[in-house]
Design a protein around this nucleic acid. Structure first.
Lengths: 224, 224
DNA sequence: TCAAAATTAATAGTAAAACTATTAAAAAAG
DNA sequence: CTTTTTTAATAGTTTTACTATTAATTTTGA
């Protein structure tokens, strides 16, 4: 049951990879150890050569799964947002009050993640750390328009638009629902980063979470 | 007068560079043409070799000004924020109403920049485009804590804390002034990027600017 | 004024990163 | 059980990122 759920819920655009890493032992090893290595040394210092050494494989074997390390990060991000989308669906269905739904969605998006035992080859808690520090790099490139057309950011945009629908239910008169939501999703990651590294420009700390800040924000911004 | 003003107002931490690029013709050429090249090919593809070729200098000559291309981007960012700080000072002094002050500051931060003729070797409008697409990369690194300690982000943090003071004047009871402001500054850049590349998740377009969105936001969030 | 000192910039490197072509071995299909 | 396909390793190439050395120019101070 667990494995059925875990394979059903995560769907990554197949243009992102050359060969599906979920389809082989080596592929899963690349994901699992790749997440750990990026967390350890940072994406800028990460190379397929280093990952190959870590998992006892040759660099060129990894190139058969991903064209380059950028695509690998896009893959991990897509996987992450697909997993978040699933969690958001679980958290918001059967909630009738739109504002309550919105607060649940914000919690899913902005909360610090604990590992989910259903997917043994992905440590979601560490993946969350990577997304906080590296996700914006997936679209801050010269290729963003091309990759957007190819659907690399579909899941991310779908999550935002699902939340936009909820905001519109809460306050149909609010004029900037899309900017508000994209701002919350991106800003949630950013506030986590500031809490860990630039504490003087955030109120987030051990006691105040990004979830607290953004929950308060939507209550002030939206008529409800 | 113009040159006195321009040299007074921009002050960049001298740990960022090896040799002050403002101190020589070659240095100014590096800044001027570097901005154009990064805008053209993106920071990821930018190298000192390519810039050297563009300005008819050897790669190794550029290395005497900046340790690496990361530091070059940190320098351009510092320069940009220093220039913004000056513009913000001009825009907010002699404004007595705190909310009006805040709206002026938000306008300076989030508006699309036009070139300023006072600094001939810097095209501020193109630099603004670079900041939108590349600035977050300056701190999304493993070295962020070390570089923060060395003062690489001082001006950026000072701008945010200046705005935090204004927010606190507007509404002393608001519990998250730092998160609100860091969110506006970072989010302003982000909304510009979304408008240009991921239109489906922002309300910003030719008619609605990030300034409109954030001006409305603070009016809703703060009691005034 | 002119020789010594200091600065500036070019040449010619190296090491690592980012890939690719070829081939060998293992697994799957007919 | 042999042919085809898939998988992965070896051994390359090109580019990036940087450095050591040397040559040329500028500055300075006796």
């Amino acid at each position: 049951m667990k494995t059925i759920l875990s394979s059903l819920r995560i769907q990554v655009n197949d243009k992102i990879y050359l060969k599906d890493p979920e389809s082989s032992v080596l592929g899963k090893k690349i994901i699992k150890e790749g997440i750990l290595l990026i967390d350890e040394i940072g994406f800028d210092c990460f190379t397929f050569k280093k990952l190959g050494a870590k998992i006892g494989s040759n660099e060129s074997s990894l190139y058969r799964y991903f064209e380059n390390k950028h695509k690998f990060l896009v893959y991990l991000s897509s996987w992450y947002w697909s997993w978040i989308e699933y969690k958001m669906l679980l958290a918001t269905t059967n909630v009738t009050c739109p504002m309550e739904q919105l607060l649940k969605a914000i919690a899913v998006i902005t909360e610090k993640i604990k590992d989910d035992d259903a997917t043994l080859h992905v440590n979601e808690s560490i993946l969350n750390k990577i997304i906080i520090a590296e996700f914006t790099k997936t679209f801050l490139t010269k290729e963003v328009d091309e990759e957007n057309r190819e659907g690399f950011f579909t899941i991310y945009k779908r999550i935002i638009n699902r939340m936009v629908d909820i905001v519109t239910m809460v306050d149909p008169e609010y004029p900037y629902p899309k900017s508000l939501v994209s701002n919350i999703v991106e800003g949630g990651l950013h506030q986590h980063f500031l809490r860990d590294h630039l504490q003087t420009i955030t109120n987030c700390n051990e006691k105040i979470s990004p979830t607290d800040y953004y929950s308060d924000l939507v209550k002030r911004v939206l008529k409800h």
